[in-house]
Design a protein around this nucleic acid. Sequence first.
DNA 1: ATACCTCTAAACAAAG
DNA 2: GCTTTGTTTAGAGGTA
Length: 457
Amino acid sequence: MGPTMPPSKKAQSPSSGASASQGMSPPYRQGDAATAASEAEGADLSLSVSASFSKAEDEELTSLSWLHESTDLLNSFSHSGLRSVSPLQDPDGQQTRSPSSSPSLDDPLLGDAHSPYDLTGGANRKPPYSFSCLIFMAIEDAPNKRLPVKDIYGWILEHFPYFANAPTGWKNSVRHNLSLNKCFKKVDKDRSQSIGKGSLWSIDPEYRHNLIQALKKTPYHPYSTGLAAASNSPPIASLFLSVPRGVIQNGARVRSQALFPVIRPLPVSPVGSRTSAIRSSLGDYLTRGQDSPPPCGEDLQEDHTYSTAKSPSRLCSSPVASPSSTLDDDDIIAVEIQSDVKPEPREIPVDSHITTAASTCISQQPPRGQRRNSSGAGAGTLPGSSLPWTKARARGISDTLPLKKRRAVEKPPESDDEEMKEAAGSLLHLAGVRACLNNITNRTAKGQKEQKEALRN
DNA sequence: ATACCTCTAAACAAAG
DNA sequence: GCTTTGTTTAGAGGTA
């Protein structure tokens, strides 16, 4: 028997690894506890994202418009020809990464022309999303929020060209996920509909929230190491955005920062219009800044070249827990953007709504240990970032957890504000943004406190 | 070293 | 009988 089996919707086999691991009292690492405490503190200190939005916008954000926009982003990145400078290359396009690192057909340097920031992964590269996330997006993108397996295949094929030429095993994986992951449930087929054999699959509302959380965590990205290795890319240009480390760590983040202020619910379909709307707004914001977005239909890449500062995945997959994610004296890093639009350096305050949104995104993430200990379904995220949200986690597993963890698992439904934060965070996440802002807010608050004390003395 | 998570492969059964 | 769908088991590989 292999490692832990994801919890099955059906009765667990007695020999199942899931039952074995579920019965186990999970190790409660010190780091995890520290993380939990840190996150709790961060949550308190985090500024409210809603401050940046009207009530109407709040409501809009609580809808799934962000998801549709996100899927549009997938389209826009894959079809628009947008291509940011690979962090594996210097501005001149020279390879900066060791040729010996991760040589594979999937290598961005060897593969197709898609950027590592291309969330579709391109034709030769596996998308960064787990199957569970793909299925979730597919189903959520469906008008009725339910799809037969066949259409799920179709959606994935449509949005992720990689699978067009991939071995058919991925379909098996999709079915495997549908079957095993409790977040997905079969819907009794309407007899009037002739969809062929099989059932419609939908998202279990009870676990939809968890799927959103899973989705908003940046999915596992096989190139995170490579991205990290590329952090030495030399400065490019004249625009310096001083932002807290972790807020902007690659080009996608720069884009996504811009994305957040322009979130608007868009028609659920057609995809093209949503895509163009997003792209347009995004381009506007990037070109002029958030205060005065002008029309902009040009390729972002042409005017803005983004360099990376840190590995996105490394820093943020465990933003709070990781000691490396804590901010040092050089909290303010320079992100150089090649642009002739904004020649002067610009400071982005830590407590801007952008960073705040990102911080809430992070703060929503349960401690790694907590996630891990809850036994995973076949729903995925990035490697090591398991989903905290299977039924087993919410129910059966929680019974075996220490009280502290159990409470976390069984926490009551989040408020609208939490949902809104979540949606905002999801957007940021889906656009490639993950940030370690709990630390930032923590440090900000801490710094202010220290300042006050110093003044007092 | 260990536990956990995700993916993949495969076998099998049921349904169309 | 074939194909598709759904379920289950097993193991590999990666991460923390």
